[in-house]
Design a protein around this nucleic acid. Structure first.
Lengths: 223, 223
DNA sequence: GTCTATAGTCAGATAGAC
DNA sequence: GTCTATCTGACTATAGAC
């Protein structure tokens, strides 16, 4: 039953880390939720930190594979011409909203996404550094495609806009559940939320540059 | 010297909470950095959690006051007509990038902003609940103005887009320092970053709705 | 107001029986 | 592989001297 125990731990840890964060989740919490022995985490994963890495990898690797697969597909179809910004954004964001395989419990689909959002903002630098490696290829490939898609924008501005995009995505992943529960008037299907996010970020990315010809004087005012 | 001790604690806590998060910062860390006695936090603030609230209030209250002041100004000048989305967004975002008064150390300006970003994503629900109250008026006033500014969009879509905006802002606040340090080619002045963020979110907010006439069939593909 | 000393709790990790 | 029992250390908070 070794593999079953490992999966039970991964599922329980994923949800608890997503809901309470890494530091606020104890191994006692995890093993109790997974209904396994306290010592099982250290036996199977070595340490709490290694367990966290394992949880992240289980979700991130297939997620980023799917992103790259979609990008390949787009680039093949485009045959050398720059991609439309919206389609680029769609290829990056859609995999986050898809049902994924390999999970034991259906609810844990959402908890991994929540965890992804959390892991971008709330992580200790040491833990965060161990995760960015999983994104290297995705970052490089999509950045290149984005620069080709929006050649009139300055590279520096584009880097910041990409940050804005990731921020929108992360924040949404983390708060989607809470917002949906507390605001009945915000009810949208996941597909619709995804579409809103794609439109928002695609338009934002391709907004005309404003700061170009300016020094760093005060912008102030606002009319 | 009571007031000096309190300020020293607030400054140290602000920076440590911003860099490492609430749970990963101990009272020993704080009092050591502030060069005060370990018992001083409990004497002056009662508990670690109360200290955190105090840190947040010191920054959030003037920040939101300034947001509302700018909104008042815009609405007075507009005299009843809906505001331009860009100006609305500008009034909301600009105060985050301004130098603020009342801080002892200049560096702590940035750490509060980092902390704001962190507090939106990485906080325990119990702590988070105690902070949302400080945003109530801002949320209500700006939401109303936004609905008037973009009357053609569905309310549900607008709620989500507002979430995207806050996500972009939070994420940027948290990662701005790291990005600037690690990517020399991303060097922009704070004013320019702010302008990029305003353009990005204003265009995103006013993007035409796409999902309106659709069921929840699979969007899939991407060409 | 400031300090030392310490109470009381809970954490991650492991040794060793089964 | 699983379990119990326990080690070791860190944490928040406070009592009481100054």
């Amino acid at each position: 039953m070794t593999t079953l125990t490992k999966t039970r731990i991964l599922d329980a840890a994923e949800q608890l880390f997503a809901d309470h964060g890494f530091s606020n989740t104890s191994m006692r919490d995890i093993t109790a939720a997974a209904e396994v022995n306290l010592a099982a985490v250290n036996y199977h994963f070595g340490s709490k930190e290694s367990l966290f890495i394992a949880v992240m990898e289980r979700g991130t690797i297939p997620l980023n594979q799917e992103r790259l697969r979609r990008l390949d597909e787009l680039e093949t179809n485009a045959g050398g011409t720059p991609l439309a910004t919206e389609e680029l954004v769609r290829a990056f964001l859609t995999p986050m909203f898809e049902v994924r395989n390999g999970w034991t419990e259906p609810r844990s689909k959402d908890s991994f996404l929540k965890l992804v959002g959390r892991s971008h903002t709330g992580l200790e630098p040491t833990l965060h550094a161990k995760l960015v490696g999983q994104y290297e290829e995705v970052i490089q490939r999509f950045s290149q495609a984005l620069v080709r898609s929006l050649p009139h924008l300055q590279p520096a501005g584009l880097i910041w806009r990409t940050l804005f995009l990731v921020g929108s995505m992360s924040f949404t992943m983390t708060w989607a559940g809470t917002v949906l529960n507390n605001r009945p008037q915000a009810q949208l299907a996941p597909q619709e939320i995804l579409e809103e996010l794609i439109q928002f970020t695609a338009k934002g990315l391709s907004a005309p540059a404003r700061f170009a010809g300016r020094t760093q004087a005060t912008p102030e005012v606002g009319q």
